[in-house]
Amino acid sequence: MKAVLGDYRENVTTKKKNSILRSIKRDSLLYLLLLLPMAYIFIFKYAPIYGVLMAFQDYNIFQGISGSEWVGLDVFKFIFEQNSFYRALTNTLVLNFLDLIAGFPAPIILAILLNELRFVRFKKITQTILYLPHFLSWVIIGGMVYLMFSTGGMANSVLSSLGLGNIEFLSQKTNWLIMYVAVGVWHSVGWGTIIYLAAIIGINKELYEASDIDGCSRLRKIWHITLPGIKPTIIILLILQIGRMISIGFDRPFVMGNSLVSEYSDVISTYVYRIGIGSGDFSQATAVGLFQSVVGLIFLVAANFIAKKIGEQGIW
Protein backbone atom coordinates (compact mmCIF):
# COMPACT_ATOMS: atom_id res chain seq x y z
CA MET A 1 0.00 0.00 0.00
CA LYS A 2 2.79 2.41 0.92
CA ALA A 3 4.59 1.59 -2.32
CA VAL A 4 1.42 2.38 -4.31
CA LEU A 5 0.96 5.71 -2.51
CA GLY A 6 4.64 6.53 -3.07
CA ASP A 7 4.35 5.84 -6.78
CA TYR A 8 1.16 7.91 -6.95
CA ARG A 9 2.78 10.92 -5.24
CA GLU A 10 5.83 10.62 -7.46
CA ASN A 11 3.62 10.58 -10.56
CA VAL A 12 1.69 13.64 -9.35
CA THR A 13 4.95 15.50 -8.64
CA THR A 14 6.33 14.57 -12.06
CA LYS A 15 3.15 15.74 -13.78
CA LYS A 16 3.29 19.08 -11.92
CA LYS A 17 6.93 19.61 -12.91
CA ASN A 18 6.17 18.75 -16.53
CA SER A 19 3.18 21.11 -16.47
CA ILE A 20 5.34 23.94 -15.10
CA LEU A 21 8.05 23.31 -17.70
CA ARG A 22 5.46 23.25 -20.50
CA SER A 23 3.92 26.53 -19.32
CA ILE A 24 7.37 28.17 -19.11
CA LYS A 25 8.22 26.94 -22.59
CA ARG A 26 4.87 28.06 -23.97
CA ASP A 27 5.07 31.54 -22.40
CA SER A 28 8.84 31.98 -22.55
CA LEU A 29 8.63 35.40 -24.22
CA LEU A 30 6.28 36.67 -21.51
CA TYR A 31 8.67 35.49 -18.82
CA LEU A 32 11.52 37.28 -20.61
CA LEU A 33 9.46 40.47 -20.64
CA LEU A 34 9.05 40.13 -16.87
CA LEU A 35 12.80 40.14 -16.29
CA LEU A 36 13.17 43.91 -16.80
CA PRO A 37 10.49 45.03 -14.30
CA MET A 38 11.65 42.37 -11.84
CA ALA A 39 15.23 43.63 -12.14
CA TYR A 40 14.01 47.20 -11.64
CA ILE A 41 12.06 46.26 -8.49
CA PHE A 42 14.99 44.29 -7.06
CA ILE A 43 17.64 46.95 -7.80
CA PHE A 44 15.69 50.07 -6.84
CA LYS A 45 13.21 48.73 -4.25
CA TYR A 46 14.75 45.78 -2.41
CA ALA A 47 18.49 46.37 -2.65
CA PRO A 48 18.34 49.84 -1.00
CA ILE A 49 16.65 48.31 2.08
CA TYR A 50 20.18 47.49 3.24
CA GLY A 51 20.68 51.23 3.76
CA VAL A 52 18.07 51.24 6.56
CA LEU A 53 20.92 50.17 8.85
CA MET A 54 22.14 53.78 8.77
CA ALA A 55 19.19 54.74 11.00
CA PHE A 56 20.83 52.79 13.85
CA GLN A 57 24.36 54.08 13.29
CA ASP A 58 26.39 57.23 13.65
CA TYR A 59 26.92 56.96 9.92
CA ASN A 60 30.18 58.17 8.45
CA ILE A 61 30.22 58.51 4.67
CA PHE A 62 33.93 57.65 4.51
CA GLN A 63 33.70 54.53 6.66
CA GLY A 64 30.45 53.23 5.13
CA ILE A 65 27.78 51.13 6.77
CA SER A 66 30.15 48.33 7.77
CA GLY A 67 32.60 50.69 9.47
CA SER A 68 30.22 53.15 11.15
CA GLU A 69 29.52 53.02 14.88
CA TRP A 70 26.29 51.43 16.08
CA VAL A 71 24.20 53.69 18.33
CA GLY A 72 20.93 51.77 18.53
CA LEU A 73 17.85 54.00 18.92
CA ASP A 74 19.80 57.15 19.83
CA VAL A 75 19.12 58.70 16.42
CA PHE A 76 15.36 58.21 16.85
CA LYS A 77 15.47 59.66 20.38
CA PHE A 78 17.27 62.73 19.07
CA ILE A 79 14.75 63.21 16.24
CA PHE A 80 11.75 62.88 18.55
CA GLU A 81 13.16 65.65 20.71
CA GLN A 82 13.26 68.12 17.81
CA ASN A 83 10.38 70.62 17.44
CA SER A 84 11.18 70.95 13.74
CA PHE A 85 10.39 67.26 13.22
CA TYR A 86 6.95 67.57 14.82
CA ARG A 87 6.26 70.67 12.76
CA ALA A 88 7.14 68.80 9.56
CA LEU A 89 5.03 65.82 10.66
CA THR A 90 2.03 68.03 11.48
CA ASN A 91 2.31 69.88 8.17
CA THR A 92 2.50 66.58 6.29
CA LEU A 93 -0.66 65.28 7.93
CA VAL A 94 -2.54 68.56 7.46
CA LEU A 95 -1.63 68.93 3.77
CA ASN A 96 -2.42 65.28 3.04
CA PHE A 97 -5.74 65.58 4.88
CA LEU A 98 -6.66 68.65 2.82
CA ASP A 99 -5.67 66.78 -0.34
CA LEU A 100 -7.85 63.86 0.76
CA ILE A 101 -10.88 66.08 1.40
CA ALA A 102 -10.58 68.14 -1.78
CA GLY A 103 -8.64 65.90 -4.13
CA PHE A 104 -10.13 62.46 -3.55
CA PRO A 105 -13.76 63.21 -4.57
CA ALA A 106 -12.71 65.40 -7.52
CA PRO A 107 -11.82 62.61 -10.02
CA ILE A 108 -14.96 60.69 -9.02
CA ILE A 109 -17.19 63.67 -9.78
CA LEU A 110 -15.29 64.45 -12.97
CA ALA A 111 -15.49 60.84 -14.20
CA ILE A 112 -19.26 60.79 -13.64
CA LEU A 113 -19.68 64.10 -15.46
CA LEU A 114 -17.58 62.91 -18.40
CA ASN A 115 -19.53 59.67 -18.53
CA GLU A 116 -22.78 61.63 -18.82
CA LEU A 117 -21.58 63.60 -21.85
CA ARG A 118 -23.25 62.48 -25.07
CA PHE A 119 -21.15 64.51 -27.54
CA VAL A 120 -18.27 62.05 -28.07
CA ARG A 121 -15.83 64.45 -29.76
CA PHE A 122 -16.25 67.10 -27.07
CA LYS A 123 -15.80 64.38 -24.44
CA LYS A 124 -12.50 63.24 -25.96
CA ILE A 125 -11.18 66.79 -26.28
CA THR A 126 -12.14 67.53 -22.68
CA GLN A 127 -10.44 64.37 -21.43
CA THR A 128 -7.24 65.21 -23.30
CA ILE A 129 -7.14 68.74 -21.88
CA LEU A 130 -7.73 67.45 -18.36
CA TYR A 131 -4.99 64.81 -18.64
CA LEU A 132 -2.29 67.23 -19.82
CA PRO A 133 -1.34 68.77 -16.42
CA HIS A 134 -0.32 65.33 -15.15
CA PHE A 135 2.55 65.26 -17.64
CA LEU A 136 3.93 68.65 -16.58
CA SER A 137 6.88 68.75 -14.20
CA TRP A 138 6.25 70.39 -10.83
CA VAL A 139 9.13 72.73 -11.62
CA ILE A 140 7.19 74.00 -14.63
CA ILE A 141 3.96 74.20 -12.64
CA GLY A 142 5.74 76.08 -9.85
CA GLY A 143 7.01 78.62 -12.37
CA MET A 144 3.52 79.02 -13.81
CA VAL A 145 2.01 79.51 -10.34
CA TYR A 146 4.65 82.09 -9.45
CA LEU A 147 4.14 84.04 -12.67
CA MET A 148 0.38 84.09 -12.23
CA PHE A 149 -0.09 84.47 -8.48
CA SER A 150 2.98 86.24 -7.10
CA THR A 151 2.66 89.79 -5.81
CA GLY A 152 3.47 91.22 -9.24
CA GLY A 153 1.89 88.34 -11.15
CA MET A 154 -0.87 88.25 -13.73
CA ALA A 155 -3.71 87.72 -11.24
CA ASN A 156 -2.72 90.67 -9.07
CA SER A 157 -2.20 92.86 -12.15
CA VAL A 158 -5.79 92.16 -13.18
CA LEU A 159 -7.06 92.80 -9.64
CA SER A 160 -5.11 96.07 -9.45
CA SER A 161 -6.53 97.22 -12.78
CA LEU A 162 -10.01 96.59 -11.37
CA GLY A 163 -9.17 98.59 -8.25
CA LEU A 164 -9.40 95.59 -5.93
CA GLY A 165 -5.82 95.66 -4.64
CA ASN A 166 -3.27 92.87 -4.37
CA ILE A 167 -3.87 89.51 -2.73
CA GLU A 168 -0.94 87.65 -1.17
CA PHE A 169 -1.68 84.27 -2.75
CA LEU A 170 1.70 82.73 -1.96
CA SER A 171 2.83 84.48 1.22
CA GLN A 172 -0.13 84.14 3.63
CA LYS A 173 -0.99 80.87 5.36
CA THR A 174 -4.65 80.49 4.36
CA ASN A 175 -4.12 81.71 0.80
CA TRP A 176 -1.08 79.47 0.35
CA LEU A 177 -2.93 76.43 1.63
CA ILE A 178 -5.80 77.11 -0.79
CA MET A 179 -3.36 77.51 -3.67
CA TYR A 180 -1.47 74.36 -2.68
CA VAL A 181 -4.61 72.22 -2.63
CA ALA A 182 -6.14 73.81 -5.74
CA VAL A 183 -3.00 73.34 -7.83
CA GLY A 184 -2.70 69.75 -6.62
CA VAL A 185 -6.29 68.99 -7.65
CA TRP A 186 -5.78 70.63 -11.04
CA HIS A 187 -2.62 68.59 -11.59
CA SER A 188 -4.01 65.16 -10.68
CA VAL A 189 -7.78 65.23 -11.24
CA GLY A 190 -7.69 64.43 -14.95
CA TRP A 191 -5.34 61.48 -14.58
CA GLY A 192 -7.34 60.11 -11.64
CA THR A 193 -10.51 59.97 -13.72
CA ILE A 194 -9.01 57.22 -15.93
CA ILE A 195 -9.47 54.57 -13.22
CA TYR A 196 -13.02 55.63 -12.43
CA LEU A 197 -14.02 55.85 -16.09
CA ALA A 198 -12.69 52.32 -16.57
CA ALA A 199 -14.76 51.18 -13.57
CA ILE A 200 -17.87 52.90 -14.94
CA ILE A 201 -17.43 51.21 -18.32
CA GLY A 202 -17.47 47.86 -16.52
CA ILE A 203 -20.96 48.45 -15.08
CA ASN A 204 -23.66 46.28 -16.65
CA LYS A 205 -25.47 48.38 -19.30
CA GLU A 206 -28.68 46.44 -18.72
CA LEU A 207 -29.03 48.23 -15.38
CA TYR A 208 -29.18 51.59 -17.15
CA GLU A 209 -31.64 50.22 -19.72
CA ALA A 210 -33.91 48.93 -16.95
CA SER A 211 -33.73 52.29 -15.17
CA ASP A 212 -34.74 54.04 -18.41
CA ILE A 213 -37.80 51.81 -18.62
CA ASP A 214 -38.65 52.70 -15.01
CA GLY A 215 -38.33 56.41 -15.85
CA CYS A 216 -35.34 57.16 -13.62
CA SER A 217 -33.67 60.55 -13.97
CA ARG A 218 -29.94 60.94 -14.56
CA LEU A 219 -29.30 61.82 -10.94
CA ARG A 220 -31.11 58.70 -9.75
CA LYS A 221 -29.12 56.52 -12.16
CA ILE A 222 -25.89 58.06 -10.89
CA TRP A 223 -26.89 57.55 -7.25
CA HIS A 224 -28.35 54.04 -7.53
CA ILE A 225 -26.26 52.50 -10.36
CA THR A 226 -23.05 54.38 -11.13
CA LEU A 227 -21.85 55.08 -7.57
CA PRO A 228 -22.61 51.55 -6.25
CA GLY A 229 -20.95 50.13 -9.37
CA ILE A 230 -17.67 51.93 -8.72
CA LYS A 231 -17.86 51.64 -4.92
CA PRO A 232 -15.23 48.83 -4.67
CA THR A 233 -12.79 50.94 -6.71
CA ILE A 234 -13.45 53.96 -4.52
CA ILE A 235 -12.82 51.94 -1.34
CA ILE A 236 -9.55 50.48 -2.60
CA LEU A 237 -8.21 53.86 -3.74
CA LEU A 238 -9.31 55.43 -0.45
CA ILE A 239 -7.39 52.78 1.50
CA LEU A 240 -4.27 53.45 -0.58
CA GLN A 241 -4.71 57.21 -0.10
CA ILE A 242 -4.98 56.81 3.67
CA GLY A 243 -1.86 54.64 3.59
CA ARG A 244 -0.01 57.59 2.06
CA MET A 245 -1.16 60.09 4.68
CA ILE A 246 2.24 60.16 6.37
CA SER A 247 4.22 60.37 3.12
CA ILE A 248 4.26 63.28 0.73
CA GLY A 249 6.03 64.07 -2.49
CA PHE A 250 9.06 66.33 -2.41
CA ASP A 251 8.49 68.35 -5.60
CA ARG A 252 5.20 70.05 -4.85
CA PRO A 253 5.84 71.50 -1.36
CA PHE A 254 9.44 72.35 -2.25
CA VAL A 255 8.52 74.21 -5.45
CA MET A 256 5.44 75.97 -4.11
CA GLY A 257 6.92 76.78 -0.70
CA ASN A 258 8.95 79.87 0.13
CA SER A 259 10.58 81.49 3.14
CA LEU A 260 7.39 83.38 4.05
CA VAL A 261 5.35 80.20 4.47
CA SER A 262 8.11 77.77 5.48
CA GLU A 263 6.32 77.27 8.79
CA TYR A 264 3.49 75.60 6.87
CA SER A 265 5.25 74.22 3.78
CA ASP A 266 8.04 72.33 5.58
CA VAL A 267 6.97 68.67 5.40
CA ILE A 268 8.64 65.30 6.01
CA SER A 269 10.17 65.10 2.54
CA THR A 270 11.69 68.60 2.68
CA TYR A 271 12.81 67.94 6.25
CA VAL A 272 14.65 64.79 5.13
CA TYR A 273 16.19 66.72 2.23
CA ARG A 274 17.33 69.50 4.53
CA ILE A 275 18.94 67.31 7.18
CA GLY A 276 20.17 64.62 4.79
CA ILE A 277 21.44 66.46 1.73
CA GLY A 278 21.75 69.93 3.24
CA SER A 279 23.37 69.01 6.55
CA GLY A 280 24.89 65.68 5.54
CA ASP A 281 23.30 63.83 8.46
CA PHE A 282 22.33 60.64 6.66
CA SER A 283 21.50 58.77 9.88
CA GLN A 284 18.75 61.23 10.79
CA ALA A 285 17.41 61.30 7.24
CA THR A 286 17.25 57.50 7.12
CA ALA A 287 15.60 57.31 10.54
CA VAL A 288 12.89 59.77 9.52
CA GLY A 289 12.31 57.86 6.30
CA LEU A 290 12.02 54.58 8.22
CA PHE A 291 9.59 56.15 10.69
CA GLN A 292 7.55 57.45 7.77
CA SER A 293 7.39 54.01 6.14
CA VAL A 294 6.40 52.19 9.33
CA VAL A 295 3.62 54.66 10.19
CA GLY A 296 2.40 54.57 6.59
CA LEU A 297 2.21 50.77 6.77
CA ILE A 298 0.20 51.02 10.02
CA PHE A 299 -2.23 53.47 8.37
CA LEU A 300 -2.61 51.18 5.37
CA VAL A 301 -3.28 48.06 7.46
CA ALA A 302 -5.71 49.94 9.72
CA ALA A 303 -7.68 51.36 6.77
CA ASN A 304 -7.86 47.93 5.15
CA PHE A 305 -8.99 46.36 8.46
CA ILE A 306 -11.75 48.94 8.92
CA ALA A 307 -12.93 48.45 5.33
CA LYS A 308 -13.19 44.69 5.89
CA LYS A 309 -15.02 45.18 9.18
CA ILE A 310 -17.74 47.30 7.55
CA GLY A 311 -18.22 44.69 4.86
CA GLU A 312 -16.23 46.23 2.02
CA GLN A 313 -13.55 44.62 -0.12
CA GLY A 314 -10.01 45.48 0.98
CA ILE A 315 -6.79 45.35 -0.97
CA TRP A 316 -5.93 41.90 0.42
Score class of each variant (00 low, 15 high):
146 Y>R: 09
35 L>D: 14
96 N>R: 02
119 F>G: 10
28 S>W: 14
31 Y>A: 07
114 L>R: 08
138 W>Q: 00
127 Q>A: 05
106 A>S: 04
34 L>G: 07
122 F>T: 13
43 I>Y: 11
100 L>H: 01
132 L>T: 13
102 A>G: 05
55 A>M: 08
51 G>M: 12
144 M>Y: 09
22 R>T: 13
26 R>E: 14
142 G>L: 01
64 G>D: 02
29 L>W: 12
98 L>W: 02
28 S>F: 08
65 I>W: 02
15 K>M: 14
112 I>P: 04
54 M>G: 02
91 N>S: 04
19 S>P: 09
112 I>Y: 02
127 Q>H: 05
36 L>Q: 08
37 P>R: 08
121 R>Q: 12
14 T>M: 09
77 K>E: 06
109 I>N: 04
106 A>G: 01
91 N>R: 01
118 R>V: 14
109 I>H: 03
102 A>S: 07
32 L>A: 14
73 L>Y: 08
126 T>A: 15
45 K>T: 12
129 I>G: 06
37 P>M: 06
29 L>C: 13
43 I>K: 14
124 K>P: 01
23 S>G: 11
22 R>W: 15
82 Q>N: 15
63 Q>C: 10
69 E>I: 10
123 K>R: 10
42 F>Y: 10
80 F>S: 09
122 F>V: 11
103 G>W: 00
80 F>E: 02
53 L>W: 11
23 S>L: 14
82 Q>V: 08
30 L>G: 14
44 F>T: 05
131 Y>F: 12
73 L>H: 06
67 G>L: 07
23 S>Y: 15
132 L>R: 10
138 W>C: 00
71 V>A: 02
66 S>V: 14
69 E>P: 03
70 W>K: 14
121 R>H: 10
97 F>E: 02
121 R>S: 12
128 T>K: 08
17 K>S: 09
135 F>W: 13
27 D>G: 05
88 A>I: 00
109 I>K: 03
147 L>E: 12
91 N>K: 03
26 R>M: 12
